[in-house]
């Protein structure tokens, strides 16, 4: 059963295109939804929740049509909005318990789940104080708790690290990662920060201007590149020249030489060259692609086309 299935999903706001002809099928897992601000991430999430009606096309969550079975979909889904959406006058315990009941949990179960979930996100005594007095980090935890309280099959997290400091960011991502891996809840994590996606997710969907750029397992984006980085404790220009004369294409950058290897005895030739020059070798490592490379490449490709 597909977690999310989109069929030519299109959403226009008057003359602005938010989503254009998205067709996609996603299996359960931790899925990163990446794109710059205004790429259509929030719009997609809101369509999946049935909060927005698509202009055309269809969307399914766990095989339920979001346009026709919105209530059934929302009962199985937890949503953490991008913006602050918490009432300042209620304590977290009350808000989260009320939200659990609104997802269909009986009263007693709602109270019990609230206690569990608030503990899970790391809120203790504060839960009985009104949310108005919470720090941003605490508010984000409450927002996550209310999304988790009814034990959803899918979590839709829209920029969950918004406004957090680096420590809070790390903790939130770790919490998301654990929620996905240890409790088997599928997650769609929207972010404009590639680094967050790279650390947290195992599948990636990239959209730009409402169009699908690419959807693939994260490994496919960040696989090996066939380039080896050789780092020395001194200027690397001499090594670069030596390797070039030995027939190895390379690029020198300060103390590092980036060498393109095409199998064979490349490592041996690097080792020999280093020994001959009596250079201080710090390390030899495989270069990995990062997501930034992907977007840079795509940008360049578009520029050429």
């Amino acid at each position: 059963m597909a977690l999310i299935r989109l069929e030519s999903l299109t959403k226009h706001y008057r003359d602005v295109v938010a989503l254009e002809d998205l067709t996609l099928e996603l299996e359960p897992g931790i899925i990163g939804l990446v794109g710059s601000n205004g790429a259509g991430k929030s719009t997609l999430i809101r369509v999946l929740l049935g909060l927005l009606k698509p202009t055309s096309g269809r969307a399914f969550v766990l095989d339920h049509d979001v346009a026709r079975e919105g209530t059934a979909v929302r009962a199985m889904v937890g949503y953490m909005p991008e913006h602050d959406a918490l009432p300042p006058d209620l304590p977290a315990s009350e808000l989260v318990a009320h939200m659990a009941e609104l997802s269909g949990l009986p009263r007693a179960a709602a109270r019990e789940r609230t206690a569990d979930v608030l503990r899970h996100v790391g809120l203790y005594e504060e839960r009985y104080r009104p949310i108005g007095g919470y720090s941003t980090g605490m508010r984000q935890r409450v927002a996550l708790a209310q999304a988790l309280v009814h034990d959803p099959r899918l979590l839709l997290l829209d920029e969950p690290t918004n406004g957090l400091d680096p420590t809070g960011r790390d903790q939130m991502l770790e919490l998301v990662r654990r929620t996905g891996t240890e409790f088997g809840i599928a997650i769609l994590l929207a972010s404009h920060l590639l680094g967050e996606i790279e650390r947290t997710c195992d599948y990636l969907v990239a959209i730009e201007s409402g169009r699908l750029v690419r959807a693939a397992p994260l490994a496919a984006f960040t696989g090996r590149t066939g380039v080896v980085r050789v780092e020395l404790d001194d200027d690397a220009a001499r090594l670069g020249a030596r390797l070039a004369s030995a027939g190895l294409a390379n690029r020198v950058d300060g103390r590092s030489v980036f060498v393109a290897l095409e199998g064979g005895d490349g490592y041996d030739r690097i080792r020999d060259a280093v020994v001959e020059l009596d250079a201080g070798l710090v390390r030899i490592e495989q270069e990995r692609r990062t997501l930034e490379d992907l977007f840079r490449d795509d940008g360049a490709a578009e520029g050429v086309a």
Binding site: T71, A75, L102, G104, P106, A109, R119, D151, F183
Partner: peptide, 24 residues
């Protein structure tokens, strides 16, 4: 007070649906 604490477990109990939600 660490966020790494795991107070989480699944919920297998009844789900009462829309009428209950509205009543609440």
């Amino acid at each position: 007070d660490s966020i790494y604490d795991l107070g989480y477990r699944g919920y297998q109990g009844v789900r009462l649906g829309r009428a209950h939600a509205v009543a609440s």
